[in-house]
Simulated scan of single mutants.
Amino acid sequence: MQFNEDELNSRPLVDGAIEMMAEIDPEFPAHWVQLKLSQLAQEAEHALMEELDPRLRLEGLLRLFYREWGFQGDHQQYFSSDNVFLDKVLERRKGIPVSLGALFVYLAQHLDLPVESVGFPTQFLLKATWPEGDVQYINPFDGEFVSTHILRSWLIGHRGPFTELKPEYLETQQNHEILVRWLTVMKSALLREEHFTDALRCSDLALLFSPGDPHEIRDRGYIYQQLDCSHAAAMDYSYFIEQCPEDPAADLLKTQVETLFDEPLTLH
């Protein structure tokens, strides 16, 4: 699969996510997800399109999505891959900000609502920009409106007391940038669950977005190591050491590289 950034940015975010997930998991039910999304969009249109005031229509969609349909953030298993893959999110009606937010944006666009994605430093956010010029921010984890005061407090908790809420933190983010962040979360979840083959596909996809990224190649080396591909792991670690010699991890990996190259070559 070739990820074309312009194409990804011109289509709904969920479309790119579905293609990405089908690439990572050969059994991902892409067609079922698309049918389920169409069904939800039709239900939302039937329930809300007669509301002519777009602000009230947005409030109606929030009520429908989070209260009537019961979508919610998963507090118990936040880092589970079930919260990342859209089929599981639709089945369980639980997710994390990026997966819930992507579904909500898809539905909002069907209702002609000006809802867009924001790659806020602490988490994925939604914003509605109204013709009058005012902006509302929504936390997709629970569907609540959040003030800039709350956003500033999130930042302070994340980065320290002297952090400023810069305007660029609240800019609309393009789909390909969101998908890269989503992919990182997906890879972390799969690694935690020791699904190393799927995690390797995540890493390979991430390198389509950022070819030659030494940190991504280092991570891929770790995955190769878990899959007993010692020489491939050593090659990736060596690349990272060469590109980032000052990184503290470089010295630690040098010893591993020597050991890995000493292991017999395994053909998979």
Rank of each mutant, 00 (worst) to 15 (best):
L179K: 03
T148V: 12
S188E: 08
T129F: 02
G143Y: 01
Q136G: 06
R152Q: 11
F145C: 03
E246N: 07
E132T: 15
W130L: 09
G160L: 04
R201W: 06
P214D: 10
M186F: 04
L227R: 09
L151M: 15
S210G: 00
S203Q: 08
M235V: 08
R152F: 02
A206H: 09
P131R: 08
N175L: 02
I223L: 15
T172I: 14
N139V: 01
P248G: 13
F209H: 11
R220S: 02
L191H: 00
A128W: 13
D204V: 13
E168C: 09
E144D: 07
S147N: 12
N175K: 05
L205F: 07
Y224D: 11
R152A: 14
Y237V: 10
E144F: 06
S210F: 13
L170D: 05
L207C: 03
P161L: 10
E132K: 14
K166A: 12
D213H: 07
H195E: 13
E246S: 02
A232R: 11
L208M: 10
C229R: 09
L205M: 15
F141C: 06
R192M: 12
L200C: 02
A249W: 02
K127I: 12
G212F: 07
D213W: 04
E246D: 15
L125A: 03
C244F: 07
E194F: 03
F141P: 05
W130K: 05
R201D: 01
E177C: 05
E132N: 15
L125N: 03
T148N: 12
P167K: 07
D134M: 01
G157T: 01
W154I: 05
L183C: 04
D204M: 08
C244S: 02
L125D: 05
L208W: 04
D204R: 15
L190H: 08
Y224P: 03
Y137N: 01
F162H: 11
I138N: 11
K127T: 11
L170F: 07
A250C: 12
D142H: 10
T163L: 01
T129Q: 08
K166Y: 10
Y169L: 00
I223F: 13
Q174I: 06
R181D: 06
E168W: 11
G160H: 09
G212R: 07
D142N: 15
D228N: 11
H158Q: 07
D219L: 03
Y237P: 08
C244L: 04
L191P: 00
P167T: 10
S230V: 00
S210V: 03
H149V: 11
P161I: 08
Q225P: 01
I138G: 08
W182D: 09
S153P: 01
V185K: 05
Q226T: 01
N175T: 13
D198G: 01
I217G: 02
Q225D: 07
T148A: 10
